[in-house]
Amino acid sequence: MENWTIDINCDVGEGIGNEADLFPLISSCNIACGGHAGDVDSISEIIKLAKIHNVKIGAHPSYPDKANFGREVMNISNSELKQSIIHQVSTFKKILEREEGQFHHIKAHGALYNQTAKDEVLAMIYLDAIGEYKDTVPIYVPYKSVVAEKATDLGFRIMFEAFGDRNYNDDLSLVSRKMDNSLIKQPEKVLDHILPIIQEGNVVSVKNKRIAIQAETICIHGDTSSALEILMYLSKELPNHKVQLEK
C-alpha cells in the first residue's frame, strides 16, 4: 500500500496565544508580521517557539488592516500595498536573523491571498514586493491560481497549498467566510476532507463534485475554535491512513 507525507501548516502570531499547543502537531507555520496582526515582540516569541518544536518558519504578510484582520480587500494604492508587504517581510526577516532562525517560506494572508489567486495585477504587485526572496524561499500558493502561474513564470519556487478546515467551490475558490458552510470545524470531517486531497489529488466541493487539486502543504487555521482538537485528531488518525507528517 502506498504511503504519503504531507506538511501541515498554521497561521500563527495572530493574538490567539495557542502556539505552544499547536506546534507539536504541525510542521510549518506562517507568522503574522504586522499587517493584519503581530508586532516585533510577537514575531520574536513565535520564532523562538517554532525553533523549539522544529517547525518550519514562514512570513505571513497581508493587507495592512488590523481592524478587519486582513480579511477585507483594502482600497489603497498599488504602491502603498507594495511598500507595506516589503516592510512586513523585511521586518520579519530581520527578527528571524536575530533569533538565528531559518527562513522557510512566504504565504500571503486573508484577502491578499484570495485576491492574488485570481487578480493578475494584484498577483504581480505581491510578487514584485517579495521578489528579493525568489531564489531563497518558496511561496505557498493555491493550485491553478493566477499567482501560482505568474510566480512560476518569474522563476519563484512554489508549494501548492490546500485548506483542511475550509470548504471549496467548484472553481477551487474558498467558500466565503460570510457563508455558514465556509468552515469545517469537526475533526472527523476535516480528516474526510483532506484524505482525498492527499491520496487522490482531488477535493470534494460544497456541491459534492470531485475537483482535481494538488497540495504539498495543508493549512489548519490557528484561529479556528477547534484548531487544537482538529490537529490532535489528525495526529492520531493520519498514520492509520498511511499519511505521515513531514518534519
Rank of each mutant, 00 (worst) to 15 (best):
Y140A: 08
S42H: 02
T152K: 08
I198T: 10
E200Q: 15
S28C: 15
I220W: 00
D192E: 15
L234C: 12
M1S: 13
N68E: 02
S90K: 15
S90F: 01
E149D: 12
P196L: 13
Y126M: 07
H109A: 08
K107T: 10
K56W: 05
L238M: 13
H36K: 09
L127P: 04
I95S: 12
G38Q: 09
S28V: 03
D39N: 15
A111R: 11
G35K: 09
G201Y: 11
V137S: 06
N167W: 08
G34F: 13
S173R: 11
D171K: 14
A108D: 00
I184C: 09
V40K: 15
L245A: 10
P187Y: 01
A37V: 11
K178E: 09
A215Y: 01
L96S: 05
A20V: 12
D135K: 13
M1T: 12
F163P: 07
S226F: 02
S226N: 14
G13M: 07
E200V: 00
A32M: 10
G164H: 06
V206C: 03
H221W: 06
C219T: 04
N54H: 14
F69C: 11
I31R: 01
H104Q: 09
I43K: 00
P24N: 08
V206S: 06
G131K: 08
H104T: 04
F69H: 11
A67R: 12
V175H: 06
L49F: 12
K144C: 13
S79N: 13
K144L: 13
A117N: 04
L22G: 08
E200R: 14
Y126K: 09
S205R: 10
D7H: 13
I106M: 11
L49S: 11
K207Y: 07
I43Q: 00
A20H: 04
F103L: 06
A50H: 10
N68I: 07
I158G: 05
I211V: 14
N3H: 10
G38P: 09
I43W: 05
E188P: 00
M124S: 15
A108T: 00
S225H: 12
V190D: 08
F156N: 03
K66T: 06
K150C: 11
N30M: 04
K56T: 04
I197G: 02
G201V: 10
Q214F: 04
F92Q: 07
S79M: 12
N167F: 06
H221T: 05
S226R: 02
Y133C: 03
R210Y: 01
I52G: 00
M124H: 13
N3I: 05
I218A: 02
F156Y: 14
P61Y: 04
V55P: 00
E200A: 11
G201N: 12
L191N: 07
F156H: 13
H105T: 09
S84V: 08
I198Q: 01
L245N: 08
C33N: 03
H53S: 01
S90Y: 03
I158M: 08
N78K: 12
N75M: 12
I230D: 01
L195D: 02
K48N: 05
I47D: 03
G101Y: 01
L127I: 04
E200M: 11
E132M: 12
M74Q: 14
I198Y: 04
F23E: 03
K66S: 05
A59D: 02
H105E: 00
Q102F: 14
L112E: 03
V243W: 05
I76P: 05
C29M: 06
R98H: 09
K94D: 13
I139Y: 06
D39M: 14
N181V: 03
E2D: 15
